[in-house]
């Protein structure tokens, strides 16, 4: 713990770095995951196939492998990410984390879409809305309510997964605090890692409690 107290500014900047990484990845995965979910329920078989393939591949691969692919294999075929504050791994990390989490977001949203009574979509189509309109204005807004709790869980898990991106070498993030402090040799690993663990718990435990409260409040009453 004394590392956390003595080196608080370093931990604080790491904490903010983790939140920043998580924020980018959260926005990316929510947008892309919702898009994938709409693919999975779309009337066009090729789109359905893309959605299913994405979910199958990314849900069953380890995040580590996904990150390795984004950081090292994509540049091999000419896909390069810009650097972020001079860090080459930030954008590959965000993109890999978002691509991976999008598969879980997609499944959560799809479950929510399936929970909306089919009559809603049928009625929307019957009054002449297109598939996109009925999904966007009728089905998704109703699905949103029941998907907020599972989506919250996915995002909390994603924040925890962002530590893997840190282990990968994105500097200025919580995990990388260890690298910076271990190099000085002043603190034992126990002290540094306890500090890092506390920082993650400060994010995940309140988020979990908040999610439970939210869940109870917006429980779908049908």
């Amino acid at each position: 713990m004394d590392a956390l107290i003595q080196e608080f500014p370093l931990f604080w900047s790491g904490f903010l770095g983790t939140l920043r990484l998580a924020l980018f990845a959260a926005v990316g995965s929510l947008v892309f995951g919702t898009l994938l979910a709409s693919f999975r329920v779309s009337p066009l078989p090729p789109l359905r196939f893309v959605g299913l393939a994405w979910v199958t591949v990314f849900r069953n691969s380890p995040l580590v492998v996904v990150l390795f692919v984004f950081a090292f294999a994509l540049p091999q075929v000419g896909i390069r990410f810009p650097t972020f504050n001079g860090n080459a791994f930030f954008w590959p990390g965000v993109a890999g984390l978002a691509a991976y989490t999008a598969a879980f977001v997609c499944e959560a949203v799809r479950a929510g879409i399936n929970a909306v009574p089919p009559g809603q979509a049928e009625a929307a189509r019957a009054v002449g809305l297109t598939f996109g309109q009925s999904l966007g204005t009728i089905v998704l807004p109703q699905a949103l309510r029941s998907v907020v709790p599972p989506l919250g869980s996915v995002i909390i898990a994603m924040i925890k997964n962002s530590a893997i991106v840190g282990a990968f070498g994105v500097t200025g993030e919580l995990f990388s605090v260890d690298g910076a402090l271990s190099a000085t040799g002043v603190y034992p690993a126990l002290s540094i890692l306890t500090g890092i663990a506390v920082c993650y718990l400060v994010i995940t435990i309140p988020a979990g409690i908040g999610l439970n409260v939210l869940e109870r409040r917006i429980e779908v009453k049908r």
Partner: peptide, 23 residues
């Protein structure tokens, strides 16, 4: 349960690998 559920698993692994040899 809440403590370990809130920790990233990569941290618990790293913790074991770094701290156990140290002690």
């Amino acid at each position: 349960i809440e403590l370990f559920r809130g920790l990233p698993v990569v941290i618990t692994i790293y913790f074991a690998a770094r701290v156990l040899p140290e002690v």
